[in-house]
Computed example of a mutant assay.
Amino acid sequence: MYIHIGADRMIRAAELIAIFDVNIEQSSKISSEYMEHAREQGRVVQVGEEEVKSIVMTQDQIYYSPISSTTLKKRLNHIF
């Protein structure tokens, strides 16, 4: 199964590790350091050009999604 995370991007639900609200990056020093390290490794992907609302983590990539974390979680509930 796949989940649409914005623009033309879909990911396999089996690869999904976590979905976070984008504010977690700003509210936690550890989270911001982790994201900076991931950017340096080239693992962060911006989905579309709209305002970022959530962070979607998979095994290989981290996506900045324009879809809210609540909406993405609801989509997952329909899959499972």
Results as ranks from 00 to 15, higher is better:
F80K: 12
Q46W: 02
L76I: 03
S27P: 00
Y2I: 12
S68M: 03
Q41K: 14
I11H: 14
D21I: 08
K73C: 00
R43E: 13
Q26V: 03
Q26T: 02
V45R: 07
K29T: 08
T58R: 06
V45E: 12
H37M: 10
Q26K: 11
D60M: 11
F80H: 12
E15D: 15
K74E: 06
Y2L: 10
A18W: 11
V52E: 08
F80G: 09
I24E: 13
Q46H: 13
K74T: 02
S65C: 09
H78C: 02
T70M: 05
M35W: 05
I55G: 03
D60Y: 14
I55A: 01
Y34M: 09
R43C: 06
D21R: 04
E51W: 04
K73Q: 04
K73E: 04
E50Q: 15
M57N: 06
V52C: 06
A13C: 12
E49Q: 15
V45M: 10
E40D: 13
E51L: 09
E33N: 04
I62W: 09
A18R: 13
I30A: 08
E36C: 00
I62A: 09
I17G: 04
T58K: 06
Q46Y: 09
G42H: 13
L72N: 02
Y34D: 01
V47Q: 02
T70R: 10
S31M: 08
G48T: 01
H78G: 05
Q59H: 12
T70Y: 11
K53I: 05
S27F: 07
I30N: 03
Y64C: 03
A18N: 12
I30Y: 07
D60P: 04
S69I: 01
N23Y: 07
G6F: 03
V56C: 06
Y63M: 06
K29Y: 10
R9T: 15
K74H: 08
K74A: 05
R75P: 01
Q41W: 05
N77A: 08
K29L: 08
L16Q: 10
Q59D: 11
E33V: 00
E51R: 06
T70K: 08
E15F: 12
S32L: 00
V52L: 05
R12S: 15
L76Y: 15
T70D: 07
K53Q: 15
Q61V: 06
S69A: 14
